[in-house]
Amino acid sequence: MQRAEAHFSHGIADNLDDPKYTHYKYWSNPLETKLPHAPDMEIYSLYGVGIPTERSYVYKMSPSSKCKSIPFRIDSSADGQADSCLKNGVYFVDGDESVPVLSAGFMCAKGWRGKTRFNPSGIATYIREYRHKAPSSLLQGRGLESGAHVDIMGNVALIEDVLRVAAGASGKDIGGDRIHSDIMKMSQRINLQL
């Protein structure tokens, strides 16, 4: 844990101009660093949606005789109502099977959208979501329209977007935001000093 704390930070900066935030341990946390002054640059958040994705857990104490080093375990008896997102002690939300929509899209939806303290030069941000569509047969492999975390690399729409941007198209040229989830509504509910 000490090694992780020395190399990574998980907080929210009060003052992004504080010199401590120039240390590399803050660079991987978008809530503790600001984007560069590059007003002509564009940022894209490309991710899959439409797959139940683990977000949080209900824990209970482990029997002390079984797991001395791990005091908690997931309470698999915890279940919500029939249409609840709580199943077997795990809360599920929309995502790509590995990353929840909120984690994948928040910064482009709100944190960096327009001129904010995290985006002082107003770099344009675009969200491009790819709704998961499972392959119809085993012959399709992982699927040309997959939104799953790794399989999305074979998603034809994603590949087309990446190629068009790499060839010089702007976010507006490729159609701007394409959003299937509730990322904008979820992001507005987060009270964060921008």
Rank of each mutant, 00 (worst) to 15 (best):
M1N: 12
R3M: 09
R3F: 10
E5T: 10
H7N: 14
H10A: 09
G11R: 05
D14Y: 04
D14K: 11
D17S: 14
P19D: 12
P19W: 00
T22H: 12
Y24S: 11
Y26T: 12
W27L: 13
P30E: 03
L31K: 09
T33N: 14
P36I: 04
H37T: 08
E42H: 06
I43G: 02
I43S: 01
Y47H: 13
I51T: 15
P52H: 01
E54L: 00
S62Y: 02
S62D: 08
S65E: 14
S65L: 08
K66Q: 13
K66M: 08
I74A: 05
I74R: 07
I74Q: 02
S77T: 15
A78P: 07
D83Q: 09
N88W: 01
N88S: 15
V90N: 02
V93I: 06
V93M: 06
V93F: 08
V99S: 01
V101E: 00
V101D: 01
L102A: 11
L102F: 12
S103K: 03
S103M: 09
A104W: 01
A104R: 00
G105V: 04
C108T: 15
K110G: 08
G111M: 11
G111K: 04
R113I: 14
R113S: 14
R113F: 08
R117G: 02
R117Q: 05
P120T: 07
S121Y: 04
I123W: 06
Y126T: 10
I127P: 10
A134D: 11
A134W: 04
S136A: 13
S137W: 09
R142H: 07
L144A: 14
G147W: 00
G147C: 00
G147L: 00
A148M: 07
D151Y: 05
G154C: 06
G154N: 15
V156S: 15
A157P: 03
L158H: 05
L163N: 12
R164D: 15
A166K: 05
G171L: 03
D173W: 01
R178S: 13
I179Q: 00
S181E: 03
D182Q: 12
Q188K: 11
I190A: 02
I190W: 07
I190G: 02
